[in-house]
Simulated scan of single mutants.
Amino acid sequence: MSVIPISLNQLQPLSPEQHREWCAQLEAGDILYFPQTPIAIPEIDLQFLLGQQQTDSSLHKNIAYKPNIDRLSGVDTKTADAEAVAKLQGIMRKYSKSVTEFLTGFLEPYKANWQLDYASFRPQEEEGRDLPQRRRNDLLHTDAFPTRPTYGARILRFFNNIHPARTRDWVVSDPFAAIVKQFAPSEIAPRVDSALSRAAKSLGRGIGLDAAIPSIKRSPYDDFMMRFHNFLKENPDFQANCPKHSFNFPSGSSWMVYTDTVPHAVLAGQYALEQTFLVCPEALVRPEISPLKVLESIAGASLV
């Protein structure tokens, strides 16, 4: 994998071939990096965000904005007043819209087959946070959602470092296809749903248990990706000995990466914005190298 820098003067005009090439590089596990962000964030909004700090890091890792329902979650209600919450919601709404508009043009092959997911604001210092092992950002991991299965859609994330001076320090490892066979032991190998399992999950969804028991929602693919996320964080051999590549993203920069493909960790940094998209398998320009197809090849069966 590599970090591919893209300057603002490379953004226009883009040919259909260039759009597909950006998508193909992302799907292969590269990071597309903008030394100068293409997302305009008003200075007054930046100053407001830089003035925010959650008081208790055990409450939430970040503040989430759900654009499809225009709602915030994760706000520390002990310190935030209604006016501040409304202002933060407005800033996150504008940020989500700006990223979506930019990527709709930049990653044109995806625009008809992706789902807008959460945006987030990450105001806390990443270095030295006291969090449970499975929630730690400083351990290398691939992303999976405990309560929001993707059914094979890929997790694309766009980041902004909005700290006025500090870098946001990442370390990444080799992409999913290169590590999954080496680090996935037999006990977390892809599991194909039996007829009985499918019937039980269908019954559970029918009577509303999926809200209380998230695993009922999951396909075999999502089940594996969640277990693999946990396995990597809990595997000291992987954390110590896997290939590592360090990148320090400077203030005012942006980058995007498929975080279900690239094992990543955030070692240090404060104040970042992020927008997530779920890219459907039908939109991919190289579907054969997606985690879903890699796992289905291992399992010899459909996993969604």
Rank of each mutant, 00 (worst) to 15 (best):
A178M: 06
V75M: 12
I91M: 09
L267Y: 10
I31Q: 04
M226C: 09
N9K: 09
M225G: 01
P243D: 01
S253W: 04
R168I: 00
D70Y: 05
T261G: 01
L267S: 05
L11P: 03
A177S: 14
F176S: 08
T147L: 02
G252Q: 09
V192K: 06
P146S: 11
S197M: 13
L32W: 03
V85A: 09
Y95C: 07
A199Q: 08
Y258T: 04
V294I: 15
S197F: 05
E43F: 02
S290C: 08
Q12Y: 09
V172M: 13
D70G: 02
L292H: 01
G206P: 03
Y221V: 04
R166C: 12
G300V: 02
F48M: 09
N160F: 00
A86L: 14
D138S: 07
Y95K: 01
H229A: 01
S186Q: 13
G252H: 08
F247D: 04
C23G: 05
K181N: 14
L46P: 02
E234R: 11
Q54A: 12
Q54I: 13
G51M: 10
A195L: 13
L232N: 10
K78M: 02
S246C: 00
A24L: 07
W114G: 08
S7V: 00
E21C: 01
Y271F: 15
P5E: 12
N241L: 10
I298Q: 07
N137L: 09
F48D: 06
G128F: 06
N230P: 00
F183R: 11
Q18C: 00
P263K: 05
S215G: 00
D210N: 06
V75W: 07
R93M: 05
F249V: 11
Q270M: 08
L292D: 12
H141D: 11
P243M: 03
Q270D: 08
P42S: 07
R227N: 14
S297W: 00
A189Q: 08
L46S: 09
L72V: 02
S173K: 07
C23N: 10
T259D: 11
Q239C: 07
L72Q: 04
S194V: 00
L26N: 01
P16S: 13
P38C: 05
D56T: 08
P42C: 05
A189R: 08
A283R: 09
V172R: 01
F176M: 06
V192N: 06
A112Y: 13
S219W: 00
Y33F: 15
S197R: 11
D45A: 13
L292F: 08
R134D: 15
L292S: 04
L278W: 15
F106Y: 09
R286Q: 15
Y118W: 05
P250R: 14
R122E: 01
P13T: 05
V192L: 02
Q115T: 12
M92W: 07
I44Q: 15
P5C: 04
L8G: 06
T77D: 15
D70K: 14
L156Y: 09
L11D: 10
I298Y: 02
V99Y: 07
Q89I: 00
P214H: 10
R122W: 04
P5W: 06
R157A: 12
M1Q: 13
F247L: 11
C242R: 09
L59C: 04
Y110M: 12
P146Y: 10
D56R: 08
L8Y: 10
R205P: 01
G204L: 03
